[in-house]
Design a protein around this nucleic acid. Structure first.
Lengths: 219, 219
DNA sequence: ACCTGAACACCGTTCAAGT
DNA sequence: ACCTGAACACCGTTCAAGT
């Protein structure tokens, strides 16, 4: 059982590793979800990737740089999910928002360590790099797009789109944190997670729906 | 500048330390907010408290135990704030909820590292101890109390109190995480934080207000 | 250009020994 | 009962040297 070459992280066929950069990111994601952030060591990641413990430093600016790459990948995934929800329900902003919310909560509760990482659980907020903010911005833009279209169609109200977006994102993300942290809900029970997510989405929809109900609104 | 005895963490006057337990918690809180979680070491906490690096192990079950105590203190603080908001606005559930929400967001943005710690950013969720859940439960009970009274008074609607509580807590906590993690808002600008918190509270209040508006509701 | 292995300073934790 | 200091295994990071 000397798992020196696992299926997911194959050994290279030469002195140089073909694509060590992404191999390291995958290894880090794997160890992160398996052992938790506090037990994640650079040396273990390198060992799992099949290289010496100093090799990663040619590809990332230390441990923080590697974790930053993992967080970025998470935000990119989020943006893809949100845009997918938008495209799946054309001309139905409520359904788009519900689908995006449920997908977010489901993914995040299935990948708790990555989620915590993405929201800065391990770096002093001052030195969170700008590239990470840019990735979060992409996901934010997806929600903004859904809500902005919904407001133009007269489905959603609110004074300005940004504050509606913030409220919508906040409930969904807050629910996720409560599920992960409270012990009141078993994250491994997909039905319960989904039901909670739907309920919370409905509450926020009740809060942001246009009050006129006619489809047009005061300029 | 050999700050071997600071004002906040005074040296003891004998071989035994009078109250090392709480001195260590205070030292940990201080270093946590100053340097961030990843830079917090047990040895530094001990040095700041003025004892040898092995002394803390008589009082806490390792580093995890010390951080657990810090997180517990945070939840207790939260519960006090929520109950304070309740008592400050008798018979006005909307004002109670707004006050609790704003107080929460303000405290959490001023103490970002402690907040991340409380929500499990550094422990595998499986082994978050039961005592921590109990403290979170106290804070949860405070919100529950406000919303339950509001529902009985006909101010709030919803199918069951728990799901309303979850939505309310989620927006507020989610907003906090967004402020800390997004870089879109400067947490050091109290006016902006307060304004955002109020807007988000109003959105959720719009979502949970009773639809009858008369003060009584179907049993 | 990319990877290795020795080296350094640090860390968490334990345990016999001191007061 | 509480605290110390040496000890151990580990970690992040650097750097001359190898391919």
């Amino acid at each position: 059982m000397t798992r020196s070459k696992s299926k997911s992280f194959p050994a290279r066929d030469s002195y140089h590793h073909g694509d060590l950069h992404s191999t390291l990111v995958e290894a880090a994601e794997h160890l992160l979800e398996k052992q938790g952030l506090s037990a994640l060591s650079m040396r273990e990641v390198a060992k799992l990737a099949g290289v010496s413990h100093s090799a990663p430093y040619r590809h990332f600016r230390g441990k923080a740089g590697l974790l930053e790459a993992v967080a970025q990948a998470g935000f990119n995934r989020l943006a893809v999910m949100i845009n997918g929800a938008h495209d799946a329900y054309p001309d139905d902003p409520e359904a788009q928002l519900r689908a995006a919310g449920v997908a977010y909560v489901e993914w995040a509760t299935e990948n708790p360590e990555r989620t915590h990482l993405m929201y800065g659980g391990m770096m002093k907020s001052e030195d969170v790099p700008e590239t990470l903010h840019a990735c979060a911005e992409d996901a934010y833009a997806g929600i903004f797009h859904i809500i902005d279209e919904g407001r133009q169609a007269g489905v959603f109200g609110g004074d300005d789109t940004d504050s509606v977006v913030i409220s919508a994102w906040a409930v969904v993300h807050g629910l996720t944190m409560l599920i992960l942290g409270s012990g009141k809900v078993n994250p491994a029970n997909p039905g319960e997670v989904r039901q909670l997510a739907l309920r919370v989405c409905d509450t926020i929809l009740d809060g942001i729906r246009s009050r006129t109900g006619t489809g047009d609104q005061p300029s």
